[in-house]
């Protein structure tokens, strides 16, 4: 049997104030490991402390897949997203999602950043938050607008990464149609306000901003349940 961490905090952040947050430490017979402050990290997210603990199992797996330093590097993120180390390293959407998860912009995703970013994709998170995240995602050059050439670039990237076969004329038509619908003031770019209206009128465009997996985290990671039972026995 391997080294199992001892967890001391089991309460939901919804039942405790932030000031009561207790740093979590872990000890095992093999090594001493500093665990994140699960309670503080869960606060302000739709996740319970138990769910954050379960997601820590996932985080550890991803963050130690290539460089074993407990941080998710872009290469590790790509491996997790595309399920293959041989897949090309460049991917427009993968790179954009990584950059948004890397909130400090220091080239790695820390556990707190991982949880806060994933919380946007929780099915219970308000649509407004999902729309705001999606806007930042699609605003490729971070100009505060989704521009026509950015949208075309995304469509072409999607076609490149999928089996969809669409002619260049059809791509132009798709982009034109989208701007007809979303660019209300006809200035050739979609601003945040136009985006908010557009996503309210067309909520299906935010479908990729919800991950049903996040509703049932502890069922997906049964190893966490084993850890917890050991902890409570302690």
């Amino acid at each position: 049997m391997g080294c199992l961490p001892t967890k001391h905090v089991r309460d939901s952040p919804r039942s405790l104030g932030v000031h009561e947050a207790v740093a979590v430490s872990a000890e095992s017979s093999c090594e001493k490991v500093d665990l994140p402050d699960f309670l503080n990290i869960a606060t302000g997210t739709p996740f319970t402390v138990s769910e954050v603990e379960a997601l820590y199992d996932l985080f550890r797996k991803i963050s130690n897949s290539v460089i074993k330093d407990g941080l998710i590097h872009k290469e590790e993120f790509h491996v997790a997203l595309f399920r293959s180390k041989s897949k090309k390293k460049q991917n427009l959407f993968g790179d954009r999602v990584f950059d948004l998860f890397d909130q400090k912009g220091n080239g790695v995703i820390e556990f707190g950043e991982f949880i806060r970013s994933l919380s946007v994709f929780h099915p219970d998170t308000p649509e407004e938050q999902k729309a705001a995240f999606a806007f930042r995602l699609y605003d490729l050059r971070q100009t505060g607008f989704i521009e026509r050439h950015e949208l075309k670039e995304m469509v072409l990237a999607l076609l490149d990464e999928s089996n969809l076969d669409i002619t260049s004329d059809a791509v132009e038509m798709i982009v034109d149609t989208t701007f007809d619908q979303a660019d209300v003031n006809r200035d050739g770019r979609i601003d945040q306000e136009e985006w908010n209206v557009f996503t309210k009128d067309n909520p299906y465009v935010l479908r990729n901003m919800s991950l049903p997996y996040l509703k049932d985290i502890t069922m997906i990671f049964p190893s966490f349940v084993i850890h917890s039972e050991v902890s409570e026995a302690d």
């Binding site: 997203l81 949208l151 067309n202 990729n208």
Partner: peptide
Amino acid sequence: QPASMNAFELISLNRGLNLDNLFET
């Protein structure tokens, strides 16, 4: 028909983000 969709619908429907894969590692 993809050509009749708007671009964001196309991206959304085709799992452009691949985040589901995080949970299948």
